[in-house]
Design a protein around this nucleic acid. Sequence first.
DNA 1: GATTGACATTGACACGTTTCAATCACGGTG
DNA 2: CACCGTGATTGAAACGTGTCAATGTCAATC
Lengths: 351, 351
Amino acid sequence: MPENPNPTAARRSVGITQVAKHAGVSPGTVSNVLNRPERVATETRERVEAAIRELDYVRNSSGSNLRSGRSDCVGLLVLDVTNPYFTEVARGVEDEAVESGLAVLLLNSAEDHGRQERNLRLLAGQRAAGAVVMPIDDDLSDLRWLSKQGIPWVALDRGDVPVEEGCSVSVDNEAGGLAAGRHLIGLGHERIAFLTGPFSIDQVHRRHQGLLQAVIEAGLDPDTALDLVHVPQLNPEQGEKAVDTVLAGGPRQRSTAVFCANDQLALGFLKGLGRRGLRAPDDISVMGYDDIDVAALVHPGLTTVAQPKYKLGRTAMSLLREHFDDPGHRHERRLFTPEIVLRGSTAAHRA
Amino acid sequence: MPENPNPTAARRSVGITQVAKHAGVSPGTVSNVLNRPERVATETRERVEAAIRELDYVRNSSGSNLRSGRSDCVGLLVLDVTNPYFTEVARGVEDEAVESGLAVLLLNSAEDHGRQERNLRLLAGQRAAGAVVMPIDDDLSDLRWLSKQGIPWVALDRGDVPVEEGCSVSVDNEAGGLAAGRHLIGLGHERIAFLTGPFSIDQVHRRHQGLLQAVIEAGLDPDTALDLVHVPQLNPEQGEKAVDTVLAGGPRQRSTAVFCANDQLALGFLKGLGRRGLRAPDDISVMGYDDIDVAALVHPGLTTVAQPKYKLGRTAMSLLREHFDDPGHRHERRLFTPEIVLRGSTAAHRA
DNA sequence: GATTGACATTGACACGTTTCAATCACGGTG
DNA sequence: CACCGTGATTGAAACGTGTCAATGTCAATC
């Protein structure tokens, strides 16, 4: 196997030593210029900086990480890059990270267990400074492994992480469900359909709990006031398909409002309505959850429960930063309260 | 400053030497197990693998990259993580990358020049194996710099990259504009508004060229048949605001169809219509470009020009792979042809 | 003029890995 | 029995950087 010498590209890139030679100074000094500029005399520092510029030197982070044991990279493990909800969170994480000079590696687990594990191994291999991760389910073993590797993490959108295991930042899904319920009931709706995925998804389960509470506190009978419609996945297609089921009616009579566990479901539902020549809120009030960008884009606009996505990402990253600054740091759980965004898809029930 | 020894976490993680000791073998052998398993006797290999498992060893990529000069990371520099168009491309890149055992670092330039440059420097610092990048504008100097650092790249969605500078994968925007024009004219529309951002955006400019060509080949007079409506940005808000301008009419008479340079614009336009009690296609036919997920979600569905986004990402990555396999590789330009997706927002013009 | 201290700079080593020539063990062949 | 070849293993030398004790310089103080 003739290992070709590859004459053009294979010249190993310029390093600290070449810069040192070019500036007539020792490698150690160059390193100092890079890391503790205040320790080196202004005159020599400028000489070194000039050399760096002339040779187009860029620090080899492998060497740097290896020696220092540190890395200025943090990982952001996201459930699905395609989902607008997560990308908004990502923006928050990034903005906070660049402010402290950290680079963000955005990794995509694509809702896949193997891929999540592989990505965490990658981070461990890089000896990343830390990780913000949206776990794929409530199995914490991967995260425990990460801790054992000495990599601090913050869980995102997982209120069920025990605070002794690690930090978490999440939104109060129960409060969201409660607020949504109150809104609809306040509009006079007394039969509400809850269009949802499987309750094995913790977030969705809690939203239902909140809704239930709203019904009870209003003095309504859950059995007649609530119509539970389950679909296998939280995507638009399922939302569209579910229209008939919802319109067919609940235990006594058909619902006058539908609360979807998810904006994606709600959007699909709206589309299904349109297909049948119906529309919200005239024929039925529709409410979503998440407030993804598109929710404001459809007509009528989708009334929904807004998650502070950007802020979520930002706080997660800042929690991670606290870890760096103070290694003896106690874990923390931050819980945000969602807010309702009123748009056109819900209206008062005409009696 | 008392550098605290941090007794629990700071034990430097287990390395190849510890594994070697634990398996009663030399470090070199462990390395061989990791990199060329066929060279080591099955019996010892199993012993080493057991040690790896027991000590929970994970290879330190800093050390590895440093010594070998190689890295198994490729960068994916994206214009905007928030934009669904890019995330779909990202999926394609990722899928192709994992198949060849490469890890993808997803970096976000957030449409910002400084950030693009910083991210490229980061990649260079990591000595990444290569990069797939969507350049923020037609300024190639950043990419040239990357080449000089010995990092191969493939430009995405930039048909105007000279093939001697580097590889590129893009979609034929002129063909897209042409197809859209033919579709609308075929439906009997003889006054068409083109709702667009500034022509300094190359992609948009070309779509207009295509549209123009369609008008000319149909024997129409561009001056009367085309109504150019410029907005500063390609987002939904601008699309919504532009409704009045478009409806006010072109040179002679108001247009019966509007072709938006972008789905985002088109969606905003649709919403603006709804607000005014109008709807597509009854009052005006609306057409978009990109075929983002939401286009299928609104009612009526948005007729649009579909870009093969996933395929785009995948080919970009495969082109990069060719670079690795054959360093003497000549640059290549791949051009895809977009396809029209017919939905409900366009219809024949009632004379 | 000797001593001290502050400040700049240097040299050498260590980080964890890969690589490669060198060594070793061993069975087969002349 | 000497020789060779093959296959498995080892040891040592890098890769580029950060760190730190040691050295050097110079001015101020006694």
